[in-house]
Design a protein around this nucleic acid. Sequence first.
RNA 1: GAGCGCGUAGCUCAGCCGGUAGAGCAACUGACUUUUAAUCAGUGGGUCGUGGGUUCGAGUCCCACCGCGCUCACCA
Length: 559
Amino acid sequence: MIDPETLRTANAWPFEEARKLVARLERTGKSEILFETGYGPSGLPHIGTFGEVARTSMVRHAFRVLTEDRVPTRLVAFSDDMDGLRKVPDNVPNRELLAGALNRPLTAVPDPFGTHESFGHHNNARLRAFLDRFGFDYEFLSATDCYRSGRFDETLLAVLERYDAVMAIMLPTLGPERRQTYSPFLPLHPVTGHVMQVAIEERNVAAGTIVWRDPATGERHETPVTGGHAKLQWKPDWAMRWVALGVDYEMAGKDLIDSVKVSGQIARALGAEPPEGFNYELFLDEAGGKISKSKGNGLTIDEWLAYGTPESLSLFMYNKPREAKRLHFDVIPRHVDDYLTFLEKYPGQEGRLQLGNPVWHIHGGRPPEAELIPSGGNGPGTTLSFSMLLNLVAVANSEDPAVLWGFIRRYAPGVSPQTHPRLDRLAGHAVRYFRDFVRPAKTYRLADEREAAALRDLDAALAGHMGSTDAEALQAVVYEVGRTHFPDTSGKSKSPDGRPGVLQTWFATIYQILLGQDRGPRFGSFIALYGVAETRALIAKALAGDLLREHEAFLAERR
RNA sequence: GAGCGCGUAGCUCAGCCGGUAGAGCAACUGACUUUUAAUCAGUGGGUCGUGGGUUCGAGUCCCACCGCGCUCACCA
């Protein structure tokens, strides 16, 4: 139970939104609150779809807490699947199948994947699978079902009746030539099944029909506006849907600000109050420029989830929805770590701060306990950060999680995938990050004669330590070999017993030739964890030029 | 043209209901008994875009201006 005063002053944005709904409830006397998110099924669900549903769910949760769950709420994911197919998407198979179905409602277009009743049904199923994957609580609604079942009929007839008022709102928003043929109703052609964009010649309010002419044949048709024989044009459609379903809240991107305004006016013309709204900012690409679908500079949800957790993505969506934010790979590690930090801080916060903590909103008020690792003292421990993991993977120089875990355990004794399953998943993300960003950036080179001789000596010296995991002893071996081949004669560095030290060149050599990078781990520790035999094999491959060849093959394969 | 947003340390950004500016990274110093990764401790660094206003007090609220970005004006 949260203190009412704390709730009243909670100023996280989902609460600000929820308060708008409380006020609306008092105004309208409604007995439930309906949230809607829209989806256009001519494409697959994407990261924006996730963001809209996630954010709406956060508002919904804040509202439920604010009203102590005394007001029922629903979230409808509405698919605009009666929309006509405008062009053939280029990311589907059997494109010729779609080419023959242009202008037909998406639910009357064959499924190019051959798995569902129609293209619209296919994408609807993908949407639901997508939302289910994240555990969202929602009801799915199909526009086609709503139109056909008669659920929209009453409101459609109201649009017909108030046709002039709707036109008066729409016409000023249109260009001169579009004005000539504009109609809020789009009849379905009785023969071709096409969604027709034609002028309405007559309308018969009593019969509930519109009369139009087929531009191709000149034939006159009279079509009922009800029963799925006609649909509405975009903005009137949105308004009609709000009115018919009783939508109280719907977010939209900033690109839809004008549409929201116009649809709101239409909703009022139909005698209803438009829903409360919220305009979120669009995402930017790597360079802060706009995201263009054709350029493909956006980030897909799968890409995010390859390197980051779903919670980190939720955090990204929670943060500053009104600001344009860069949505690119490089923001992922930070969001993963910010999430971990918020989660760790949560239990120690007082209620007021907890309500402003993103994890409260991300987890519906019940964030899980943080996975801590021993911090040495008697304290509760600390979170192993993702940036640290990324460093450890780079140090481990391996895509094998077991090797990575070797390094993790060295840092945090007693920790394992069994005791820290979420850390294990993070380790998986770190490995992928290594593979896709760190490894490609490596540049191996061949050893020259002097370096090759040194490496051969190192190999021979290591032969006497097979099986050793003594990092210090192994480090001493590395230094001893270095002293022979790369002595520091300047006198600046010395060994503990006063002999000459080793040039940094020796270590640079090791890293550049064996690891393909300029810097690296303390090499004795690396050998201890990586294995003496494995290290010797690594040296052999380097001397044979295989590391360089393999890396070039790896790079070539990625292209 | 209309609308939305941004401008705070070298970089990326936090700054809630106004109360003398913070983090991460980078840099620098030191510790970890041998100049390397990591880790830990510490240091330096900011006219808070500009100009006004409200206020005892403004990064924070209001107005104007400058700069930057995006969106909409055809389709959903």
